[in-house]
Design a binder for these strands. Structure first.
Lengths: 185, 185
DNA sequence: TCGCTCATGTAAATAGTTACATGATTCC
DNA sequence: GGAATCATGTAACTATTTACATGAGCGA
């Protein structure tokens, strides 16, 4: 039940999609927009060692004929941990400080949660982000100390970015519902 | 010249605006949208100790009549380090992985850089983010492996968020130019 | 055979988180 | 007198970054 760093869930989610070697995972981080994570061996291999130590991934044969290379795959416990992470409630703090992790969760969802849960996630995300936008606006309005001009503009960026996320969530939800026949409110 | 973590620059920037105690800084992180940083004493006090050890901040008297409390202020070297950080080139990696740090820099800029430098920053930001949007779009178009449906939607979020940032940068720049009489191309 | 890609790891330094620990002052 | 706030720090643990280190296989 212990909380794990996002990197470990990213690894778990990728391996659930397709068994890979540690090097394969590094290439994914180096060559796709998942590049928020470092592709350095010093972050990947220790994370994989922790996952294996805790029984969340295991070896599943070799890559080609290469000695020493290990294809890795999640165990049943690993898939359960992944599903728990995907199903966690969205909090205000997730939105304010860990928005990237929420999007990472969403990216893995279709393979592991049912369409209704995905729909609920997008609804919850839109609602929580909108609430946070109101919080930011309230702060911008009150303005305890007279803020600097670029400080005020920077806060405007925070608001604009959150509004874009909320709008994206609403549109993604509409699209999701359409393609899964979820047409009730 | 050594690179420092964003938290230290945030502290330096706040202290440059107004000398404060460590506790005062914690309150700022706890009560404003700068809450991306933790307000825990275990992060703030060690960071302040590093800054003081390196001669970037110093004591500037006590807070009220409270024994043991220390108002902190940047030294000349601290202000120079802050200005160097504010003036650094914007890289593709800053945009892809450290966008929050760029906005933090912008928030402190008006007090430490001239209007033309701030204008250049916003221009560079808009350009670099737009280039990154193109990169993301190219990736979305090529799509090596058939991506999952939520994976594709999540990439759409990345694109939407960057577009919002680029748009914000262009608008903020127009506003900045207007209020500082920078009307050349 | 030379260089590139595939492949795995470790070591040291740095940082961040959580929890613990303490004590003064102020307000009710 | 008791609670909240002001105020500063340390300890243990966890994670990340950078750099180092090694070696096999493959193509030109």
């Amino acid at each position: 039940m212990a909380r794990r760093p996002p990197l470990e869930y990213a690894l778990l989610g990728l391996l659930a999609g397709q068994p890979m070697t540690g090097y394969g995972l590094r290439r994914v981080f180096a060559s796709t927009p998942m590049g928020v994570f470092s592709d350095s061996p010093g972050s990947i291999y220790p994370a994989l060692a922790r996952l294996e130590r805790d029984g969340l991934i295991r070896s599943a044969g070799q890559s080609g004929a290469r000695r020493g290379s290990r294809l890795l795959e999640p165990t049943r416990a690993g898939l359960a941990a992944l599903r728990r992470w995907l199903s966690a409630e969205i909090t205000r703090d997730d939105v304010a400080r860990r928005i990237d992790e929420l999007l990472l969760r969403f990216a893995f969802m279709d393979r592991h949660l049912d369409p209704v849960s995905v729909d609920r996630f997008l609804g919850g995300l839109a609602a929580t982000v909108s609430a946070y936008v109101n919080e930011l606006r309230a702060y911008a309005g009150s303005a305890g100390e007279p803020p600097s001009s670029t400080g005020r503009l920077a806060l405007g960026h925070g608001i604009a970015a959150c509004r874009a996320t909320a709008q994206w969530a609403r549109r993604a939800r509409a699209e999701w519902r359409k393609s899964h026949g979820l047409d009730l409110p």
